[in-house]
Design a protein around this nucleic acid. Structure first.
Lengths: 226, 226
DNA sequence: AAAATTATTTAGGCATTCCTAATTTTTTGC
DNA sequence: GCAAAAAATTAGGAATGCCTAAATAATTTT
């Protein structure tokens, strides 16, 4: 079926997937900004991805793109490569978690299935990457998740940090300096519905005030059952 | 100086280097055949590589190409990546020596200097790759070598197998089945100057007859001093 | 609801790297 | 040394994936 997808196409699919996954819209401008290309280039590529065989996206003018089943599988394959690579770079080559993104972005397009399997095995088939993001399975299924944005918690609620939305090194270092790393326990002391600022306590640190630039980057899982 | 070289250019430079290194000519047709492109494409690329700033090759019509200093440095960088990667794939990921070439050919163009340094360190800064080829140093110097073709030995001479010219899996498996792997000791019992066939003995195996298709793939180092 | 703003698409181009076909140059064999 | 064969080059073109500028569609403001 899919002969071979170019690096560029893989990047488009991956970006459409991640934009859509966190409840967003894969609009022309959102894609253009994430991919660092002009909006006109995105339009052209979406038209192409919708018209090839098999179609990889569903595209209607002025309404952005959705992945088809084939497109989603291709996206999950790239995402699996990316997240396994990030994990591998941290675990086996000693990279810091804020430095792996760029390297993984280049490697993800060129590793073989054999390479993927070998690192997955060596890592013990991890479920999450260093930023806490779920790694699609080798059968290209994205495991279920019920994490929510830290900013959605109300005052008094506690939760465990699960994953970071951003892969940006500066953002990640800021989160780390606040103790906001996967696995950390966080309590929201105050959530100002008004301006979106929170007062949080991470583990047994001093409480700190954070704004949405921080709290909208952190996904947590509340400790109660379903 | 060198902003960024495309994968395609890196492949041309690497191929010119290796063709030239073993005493060959980097002719248009040799390059075309090695790179899997039409001769006309090679001519076009060589003209381009000779006219960019800084020039990466010296090119005169109908005389093939030679690397400039800048071109050689770029070639050694790619070659270092390739050979370190091959070593890493074998040592750290359990690949067999005849399976690493394709993977390294794709990875060599995308790994960072950081990645290069990390695997070099983890491997203990190896001097040779799994096929016995010398790995350029981090300062982009190719270590000296005085290996010669197995086919150049005369009857009665002994030597140690140093490296294989080919990276082709089938060829490598054939050599391995004869015991011709780096480090193996080989004695030439007979070298027929007439048809180029040899009779050799590897370690304490049974003597076997080989033809130039084999003996021209194997470089050895004679055990006497300089 | 019309005007202004923003988002998106269309149109036309450019760089890269490959191709085939035709031509020219070099090498080979007699 | 000359004709045939082989090698290399030129010419013209295609696919990718990006760009800018202009046109159109959608959304927001007033």
């Amino acid at each position: 079926m899919n002969e071979h997808l170019t690096t560029s196409i893989q990047d488009y699919l991956k970006t459409i997937y991640t934009l859509t996954a966190d409840g967003g819209e894969a609009s022309t401008s959102a894609l253009a900004s994430r991919l660092g290309v002009a909006p006109a280039s995105v339009t052209g590529m979406l038209q192409k991805l919708a018209s090839i065989e098999p179609p990889l996206v569903i595209y209607r003018k002025h309404q952005g793109a959705t992945l088809t089943r084939a497109g989603e599988r291709a996206a999950l394959e790239v995402l699996r490569h990316h997240r396994l690579l990030e994990t591998y770079l941290v675990e086996s080559l000693g990279y810091s978690w804020d430095a792996v993104h760029e390297e993984a972005c280049r490697l993800e397009h060129v590793i073989s299935e054999d390479f993927e399997q070998r690192i997955a095995e060596q890592l013990g088939h991890p479920e999450r990457d260093p930023h806490g993001s779920l790694i699609p399975t080798s059968t290209l299924v994205m495991p279920p998740s019920n994490d929510v944005l830290l900013s959605s918690l109300r005052g008094g609620e506690s939760a465990v940090v699960r994953r970071m939305r951003s892969e940006d090194a500066i953002t990640l270092r800021r989160l780390e300096s606040l103790g906001l790393v996967p696995g950390a326990e966080v309590t929201v002391l105050v959530n100002s519905q008004f301006d979106g600022n929170l007062t949080i306590q991470v583990a047994s640190r001093q409480p700190v005030a954070i704004d949405p630039a921080v709290s909208d980057q952190v996904f947590v899982e509340t400790t109660e059952g379903t």
